[in-house]
Nucleic acid binder design. Structure first.
Lengths: 220, 220
DNA sequence: GCAGAATACGAGTCATCGCTCGCTTTTAAT
DNA sequence: ATTAAAAGCGAGCGATGACTCGTATTCTGC
């Protein structure tokens, strides 16, 4: 009863929409990303971020309620970029047979992880998944859903009962493989290393979806 | 030339070996683990840890060079526990056929993740992988090596060329599946949820190792 | 029972960090 | 030109936390 209508003029906190302020916000997010990559998470203090962005701390707090929000913005931006690629690939693959489409999806995953590997690494290794940052899980849920839909439209080509479970298995496997490949033998992901990784991941998933492992027995 | 022989009596820092001190060290590590689980990583200040351990900060710094070392000790202890289980299972499975042994290994992975899920979660989600904590990667390397050895002794049962790569694929997939299963639908991992997860993971890996996906073509 | 080493203590130091607030500068509209 | 809102500034406050150091306690061997 007292919280909602507060701060009528003194604290717009976060709403920003003149010409100049956009640039400031952008600079702040960009600076945060740069610091995360070049100096690590715990060097990313609000003072430092403002300094690198060429902006004052005061300005920072006009648009972001705190440090966590800055990091969240960076995460969201990165994730958005990746999800765009994935969604596009999934859409353009709905009609194709399983083998082909899985291969393309794996390739897309690799490509996505190569957009900004350094940032991806920091995000994965150093960012505590707390508070606003929990949203990462939400993104992955969308992945499951999307892939599940894909599986549904190919139900006759595959031999699994529980599509939900199958989506979980496939998405997790593909994600983990590409992710680990990028984090560890980073160099391997360029050139021919990527090719064999894609081969293996595709075989893994396609074999799982179409393999006769479990279907042996009850015809239906 | 000046660093090695320093602090002859004033700063033993970390060496500890009377009766009483062992208990202190143990209490400190234990307290750290408890705080990590119950209050989260950033509440784990050295002062707090000492308090919970029923020990003074001063004593803490007699045995640990800093907060990071405490966390590292907790991580190491947890990982050690898990690796013990994995090593044991791998040894006891060398003779069995692929299908059986993979199933057992997956089951072992699930069991390992169920030892202390809460701690495992915190370790995975909140601990920045920096400094001494990088050792986690070393542990995983051992996993790859171990599994690779297993694959070698079963070379005639499987259809893959690059054992190194195959080990990476299998270990990564199993790890990610069990890990994600524990972190997300935690409840699912108890009872019959675990059973179907094990089924799926086994099919995934066995299909990959024995499947005829790639072998079609060059006989050798 | 004594000496000296090991262990334990915890108030206090120093640095950092998140964040505020009073003020100045820029912009846009009249 | 004037003015008010919007944007920007940055010294500084309060809090917290890692870590030290001089002192007090407990062992251990003799």
């Amino acid at each position: 009863m007292d919280e909602m209508a507060r701060r009528p003029l003194l604290k717009p906190r976060k709403a920003a929409a003149q010409q100049r302020s956009r640039a400031t916000v952008e600079a702040l997010v960009e600076a945060t990303a740069r610091i995360l990559v070049r100096e690590g998470f715990d060097k990313a203090s609000t003072n430092r971020i403002a300094e690198v962005a060429g902006v004052s701390v005061g300005s920072l707090y006009q648009y972001f309620p705190g440090k966590e929000a800055l990091v969240a913005a960076v995460v969201e931006r990165h994730q958005q970029e990746i999800m765009l690629m994935v969604r596009a690939e999934l859409a353009g693959v709905l009609a194709e047979p399983v083998e082909k489409s899985v291969r393309k999806l794996v390739a897309a995953a690799v490509k996505a992880h190569r957009v900004d590997p350094a940032l991806h690494r920091v995000l994965a290794e150093q960012i505590p998944r707390v508070g606003k940052l929990e949203k990462l899980e939400t993104f992955n849920r969308e992945n499951y859903g999307l892939f599940r839909t894909y599986l549904e439209s190919h139900r006759d080509e595959i031999r699994v009962d529980d599509l939900e479970l199958a989506a979980f298995v496939c998405v997790t496997a593909i994600e983990a493989l590409t992710h680990n490949a990028v984090l560890h033998g980073g160099a391997t992901l360029a050139g021919e290393g990527a090719a064999s990784l894609i081969d293996e991941a595709t075989r893994l998933v396609v074999g799982y979806l179409q393999g006769s492992g479990r279907a042996t027995g009850p015809g239906r």
